[in-house]
Amino acid sequence: MEDVAREAGVSGQTVSRVVNARGYVGAATRERVEEAMQRLGYRPNSAARALRSGRFRTIGVVMFSFSSYGNQRTLDAIAVRASELGYALTLIPVQSSARETVAGAFRRLEEHAVDGVIIVIEAHQLDEADVEIPQGLPVVFVDSNRGGEHPFVDTDQAQGARLATEHLLDLGHETVWHVTGPAQSYSAERRREAWQATLEARGRAVPEVIPGDWSADSGYEAGLRLREDRQVTAVFAANDQMAIGLLRAFREAGRDVPGDVSIVGFDGLPDAAQLWPPLTTVQQHPERVGALAVDALLAELDGGSRVDTPLVGTELVVRESTGAPRRD
């Protein structure tokens, strides 16, 4: 670092700030230091930095599912935000909720020497596994009802489901059918609860839910069940993929969308606007969730205290898959 400082014509403290991504350094000075590092072949010694600072500058991420759009976007946002702040990621996938599997993930994280952990869960699985968090390890939960002594960050699932259901009722539909996500999913449960509460608050009948698993195939199967019932004029699918399956099933049966039945999804897939008809959907913001999770974890590391974050809001994006019901 002394060699780099001499080469760049700056102080050792300035080089340290650039290397550790801490403190203000002007853009021109930072560029001069980075060019000197490149010319001299300087690479920071992570072990030495950890001994000196007490930080490994690595964040662990435990994730139960990589298949959902929201989790993919959240992980991407975590990686981008961590990189901006000079942190690397250690990713530990967990395929089972068995206690030994989840406990093994924490053991692996301890072996990898991380400063803290972000747990991105798709379900109640961590609660069911009843695994104790290693003492002294800062943790932030994403998409969880774990709460308690640890901060959590999440989309406002209930707000999004309420917006979708109210939109269909305001168009004049008598009630709204619902295709749910997996039974063990926290997100799916919150969306279902808000759908039901909205119908009850309006004094409307609450139809039996049709189970799904987030996939377009399960949405298609749900559509095969719903399309034969002419009383079904409005459906809220718990994600856009299942809404895509519904569109196909109703179209095959000759039922027009939105003339005969209106469909709303949830997620805000980029391709939703390119479907026919373009899909009305609830836009969530997993990129904000991921960035907030990193910020909350680093705030815990810096201050040693819990940081509560607000739920990340959603918006309803109205397109051509929804309309007023036909009056025969």
Rank of each mutant, 00 (worst) to 15 (best):
D260C: 02
T309D: 01
D271P: 00
D302V: 10
R288W: 08
A234Q: 10
L51R: 00
D256Y: 00
Y186I: 13
R251T: 15
V94G: 01
P207M: 00
G268Q: 12
L224H: 02
E84V: 07
L171Y: 11
E128T: 08
T90C: 13
R227H: 12
L89A: 11
S185E: 05
D213S: 03
E200H: 06
I92L: 14
A216T: 05
G70I: 00
V209I: 14
G203L: 13
S262R: 09
D256S: 15
F236D: 11
I92S: 14
V18I: 12
G245C: 04
E122Q: 09
D3T: 02
R326L: 06
L316K: 03
A291E: 08
R162F: 05
V312G: 08
T155G: 04
G290H: 08
M37K: 10
F64H: 08
A194E: 13
D229F: 11
E208P: 04
Q13G: 10
A243I: 05
A205L: 07
P270T: 11
E320Y: 01
E193V: 14
E34M: 08
F266W: 06
V10H: 01
L75Q: 07
P44S: 09
G259I: 00
R57V: 02
D267M: 06
D170H: 10
R146F: 14
F56L: 03
G219I: 08
V25K: 03
R319A: 15
D260M: 01
A238P: 00
D3Q: 10
R49V: 15
T101I: 07
R319E: 14
R52N: 05
A28Q: 15
L75S: 09
L89K: 10
D260P: 02
D308S: 15
I118G: 03
V317R: 13
G323R: 11
E193H: 10
D76N: 13
W177K: 04
V140A: 09
V232N: 08
V153Q: 08
V80M: 14
E208L: 05
E2K: 10
T233Q: 12
R230P: 02
L224P: 01
V33M: 12
G172Q: 02
S53E: 04
P207R: 02
H167Q: 13
R52P: 06
E149R: 14
R248K: 12
T314R: 09
L275A: 02
L316H: 05
R43W: 07
Q231N: 15
V80H: 15
L279E: 04
V317E: 08
P182M: 09
A253N: 08
V94H: 01
D308W: 11
Q196T: 11
T281W: 09
M242V: 05
N20K: 12
Q196L: 10
F64K: 05
L169E: 06
H150F: 15
G41M: 02
P277F: 08
S305G: 01
A161K: 13
R248E: 11
A296E: 06
A5F: 12
D256R: 10
L301C: 14
I263C: 04
G60E: 07
W195K: 12
G70M: 05
L40M: 11
V206S: 10
E228I: 03
R202D: 11
L109A: 04
E300W: 14
S68W: 01
G136A: 07
A205T: 07
D267I: 03
G212E: 13
I121F: 03
A161F: 03
E166S: 09
R306I: 12
D229H: 13
Q284M: 13
T180A: 05
A50C: 01
